[in-house]
């Protein structure tokens, strides 16, 4: 093999390796969950938001500008579609201090507002999110009719990735009454 050919092959191999490393890094990032939250086992009494009595209430804490949380809203949309009328959902859009009120009114807000049964709530300075122990955007908590925490975690399989995942499946199972006890899953999203 001539030097020129060897150079070309080497360049091609280096290229493939570089691309492979890049994709692997990207893959790793996507599969890296955020910090796990510590949701209260019962609906926090100090919360200013009200639980819907007599049915499951889903609470989702979201950073309004987190790109990864689009997938969370998408999965919430699927969940609400499947459990239409039997579940109420409250999405807390955290507004850090120093930002305008409408800072939270992003495409995520509008998407959430468009889902039947979902109520977007501006959470000034993340007070409510903290009450629910959420530290990562996309953290989802399901409380049963008695206000007991039955699920806590993410409903996506990776950052920003739609589709079936263990968290969503667990939440659905809980909502269907197929699973008992508290279920948890990793949360993929920005820090709140």
């Amino acid at each position: 093999m001539s030097w020129k050919a060897l150079l070309h092959v080497s360049a091609a191999v280096l290229w493939l390796v570089a691309v492979g490393v890049g994709l692997a890094r990207l893959w790793d990032y996507s599969l890296s969950p955020g910090a796990p939250g510590d949701a209260p086992l019962r609906w926090p009494a100090s919360s200013r938001i009200e639980r819907v009595p007599g049915q499951f209430t889903v609470v989702v804490a979201v950073h309004p500008h987190c790109p990864c949380s689009r997938a969370t809203i998408g999965e919430l949309s699927r969940l609400m579609t499947w459990k239409q009328g039997r579940v109420a959902a409250l999405v807390l859009f955290v507004r850090p201090a120093g930002f305008a009120d409408d800072w939270v009114e992003t495409d995520l807000w509008r998407s959430a507002a468009a889902i039947p049964g979902v109520t977007p709530i501006r959470d000034d300075e993340g007070v409510e999110a903290r009450r629910f122990g959420a530290v990562t955007s996309g953290q989802t908590m399901v409380y049963d009719a008695e206000g007991r925490l039955v699920f806590s975690g993410g409903v996506t399989g990776a950052r920003g990735h739609h589709g079936d995942n263990a968290g969503l499946a667990a939440a659905l199972a809980v909502l269907d009454g197929e699973e008992t006890g508290r279920r948890e899953s990793p949360v993929f999203g920005c820090a709140l």
Binding site: L26, H63, H65, P67, P96, F99, C190
Partner: peptide, 18 residues
């Protein structure tokens, strides 16, 4: 996905760099 956030702070999203 222009930026990734941590509360009030943000930085360029890794997708942009990717």
């Amino acid at each position: 996905s222009p930026r990734t956030w941590s509360g009030a702070y943000s930085q360029t999203h890794i997708h942009v760099w990717a």
